[in-house]
Design a binder for these strands. Sequence first.
DNA 1: CTCATCAACTGACGCAGATCAGTTTTTCTT
DNA 2: AAGAAAAACTGATCTGCGTCAGTTGATGAG
Lengths: 236, 236
Amino acid sequence: MCTPYHNASCKNCQDRFGSILFKAEKCNLEEIEASKVCTTYKKGQIVFQEGAYPFGIYCVNTGKIKLSHCGDDGREQIVRLAKPGDIIGYKALLSAERYTASAIALDDSSVCFIPKDLFMSILQKDASLSLEMMRILASELRKAELKITHLAQKPVRERLAETLLFIKETYGVEQDGATLNVRLSREEIANLVGTATESAIRLLSEFKKEGLLELQGKKIRLLDLEEITRAANLQD
Amino acid sequence: MCTPYHNASCKNCQDRFGSILFKAEKCNLEEIEASKVCTTYKKGQIVFQEGAYPFGIYCVNTGKIKLSHCGDDGREQIVRLAKPGDIIGYKALLSAERYTASAIALDDSSVCFIPKDLFMSILQKDASLSLEMMRILASELRKAELKITHLAQKPVRERLAETLLFIKETYGVEQDGATLNVRLSREEIANLVGTATESAIRLLSEFKKEGLLELQGKKIRLLDLEEITRAANLQD
DNA sequence: CTCATCAACTGACGCAGATCAGTTTTTCTT
DNA sequence: AAGAAAAACTGATCTGCGTCAGTTGATGAG
């Protein structure tokens, strides 16, 4: 199923995305490079699962990963979307608890694994890396708190529009400059927004009727970014 | 209004709560102790305000502080409650952005200020402190993501019960062992839960009718913790 | 190709909870 | 102490959106 291999160089990630790990000092990066193990995951496969204990952190090399909580009633809540260069699984590692979210491949993906002991020891001796780590954590926290506020105060329509813009920011668009560069089911979109699948579907076709976007299967073409932004009603 | 003074020793905080700062090496702690400035705030006064640039971090010495976003429509969303020993304002400092939340005293409070440059320079040379900082950030992030899931999936009644338990965990109870040790308005409780003030009021008196708690003005006595926990319907 | 399965969609309905409006109680002011 | 102002409470709507149920369309297996 998952094929492990060593040959994906960190250098690739550095050149392509300037991943966080490149804040590390050179010698430390070399250590990481030497110990990491790359694994490929097919779409839908699990990188790690909620409830398990972390043995290290992961760095996305290619593909797309969703991080989601499973709610008490079994409904999924997607809390993050990761792209190449992003690291995942650090929260559980740093707070020394089990994973509170599962990581699942949205596309065929290749993900590097860095063992816990190595990462933690480097973190202790590499001030530049830890500072960057804190920056990431602080920024994620900021986003999470904003999401809390919107979830508590904004109607579904605005949150859906905001989510579409967020997906665009995260994964970008295809060559046509408008089609979201990721295939999400309507249910996944709903779980990102925090609403029922049917509501997401209804509002998407409402947006379509209003000419804000085009839908063909899972492809979503954002036609009128300005109007979508207005529909999101963002102040900040 | 706010009286600055130097005489609150960090040692006090250490003995009383084991604040994060005591993960710092001794010499660094002494440096902090030498440069910090304590200020007292009367109930309702602002420690720092959303939108402003941070000049340092704060460590709560005595009292209680709420951290809240102001939503687009002006509605407040409380994202954190801080107690003595807690540090606040680190998120903006670490991500090098403006404050995304305001900090307001819920009680007369005394708060120490540690200048940005000092804190950041110590953070860079003190691995133990930065690791603890990351631990805090990771743990806050975990809580925030859980809140997102609950906000998206749980009814108000369950979230209110959960919030009451959260307040108890944070600020504890008075000598009677049951009365929440903080005075929050119904509106503040609602803004913590993420609901309308009227709904919070209604559900509180519903809880009262069911014998889960007692209400006298702003005092809330939790009578039946087991039932409240059940009402919160927590899986995890 | 045909059937089976699952996702996408549509409509109807019901209700949790927001909003509005009005009353009572508490708190603050002078 | 009396009056004003704010908070707490209560009741009466109203509606956003979740739920349910059924149809259509897409995808994949044999």
